[in-house]
Computed example of a mutant assay.
Amino acid sequence: MQETRLDIARIRAVRRLIDPIFLDSPLYRCEALEPDLGCTLSIKLETANPVRCFKARGTEVVTSLLAGDGPRSVVCASAGNLGQALAWSGRRRGLDVTVVASRFATAAKLDRIRALDARLELVDGDHEMARERAADIALRDGIRLVEDSLDIETCEGAATIGLELVAATPSFDAVLIALGGGALATGVGHVVKAMAPEAEVICVQPLGAPAMTHSWHRRRVVTTDSTDTIADGVAGRRPIPAVLDDLLLVADDAVLVQETSIIAGMRMLLDHAGLVVEPSAALGVAAVLEDRDRFAGRHVVTIVCGSNVDMDAYHRWVGATPLPRSWSPS
């Protein structure tokens, strides 16, 4: 494999910096989902931790290094999950944390950031505007800007998921990974390609937020003017060139899925696995629903990456009527 920015030896080393509460997350075969999906499905569950998402694996690495020798104040832009994770990790190490987010972000995520003692600044725009504001604050105040996916610590922290996956499941045919900024996809993808190269690394993004997927297919950065998806955790418009370069080396495919498929995936995870998940976490199941023939008879792993969801919205999306076994996307 060509060189990415990531390194297996460093990934193994940073595991020691991460609070054990975020490590060795559950990995299990979910047989109840298999009749509807037509494949063997294993779930890597990244929601059973204090911030209910995978992001703290990266923020634990960032803040550990800063606590040892670095600025005592940090700022990030977040759709919600990174902000919670940085607030949790920063509070644990005595750092001052500022999170910039869109005021239209999921209210439950914003409330949790405040509860974790971070300073929260809201902007009247989307995540890209929050990124710009966070960069301005870092420059103005001379503090550390944590940029998810660009900062290698966030990618290598996420990559520890891949180490656990490969160690526990030595034989699988494909791993389906939610694709947003790219930390999860490049991190896990790097480990899988290095240690289980026969497995496909397939990234999944909503049709309403396709910038990184279009960039992967065209092998250059493609931006969009807006996003339109309930999967707020992956709704970026401006891919980071260095992250795309890594993704081009570790991903075998990048696919887009419909909103109806995401909602169906959320409902199936509730009905058959007892899991309440945010839309981004259902992208892998949505990808199987939209292309059953591709995955038929194969062993597929999907990373359930977050469960920070506004429950009122969740109930509106998922509803109360069971999905028919013959369901297919419109």
Rank of each mutant, 00 (worst) to 15 (best):
T229L: 04
E198F: 10
V257P: 14
C203N: 08
V204W: 03
T169Q: 15
V192T: 11
L184F: 02
V222C: 13
G233H: 09
V222F: 01
A242F: 00
S261Y: 06
V191F: 02
V221R: 05
I202L: 09
M195A: 06
P206G: 05
I240M: 12
T186V: 14
P170Q: 08
H190K: 02
A273I: 09
T260Y: 00
L244G: 10
P210V: 02
P206A: 09
A194I: 00
D173Q: 07
P239W: 03
L179D: 06
I263N: 08
L270K: 12
G189A: 04
D228W: 07
L244E: 09
V221H: 06
I262W: 01
A235F: 05
T213R: 09
L179P: 03
D245K: 11
A251K: 04
G182F: 01
A211L: 01
G181R: 05
I177G: 03
T260N: 12
G233M: 08
D173T: 08
V204C: 09
A211D: 08
M212L: 11
H214Q: 14
A174C: 13
D246W: 01
G189C: 04
L269E: 11
D232L: 08
S215I: 04
V257C: 14
S171T: 15
G182W: 01
S261D: 12
P210F: 02
V204P: 06
R219H: 11
T223C: 13
T224S: 12
V250R: 03
V234F: 09
L176V: 10
V257I: 14
L179C: 11
D252R: 04
R238P: 00
E259T: 06
A264I: 11
S261C: 09
P197Q: 07
P206R: 02
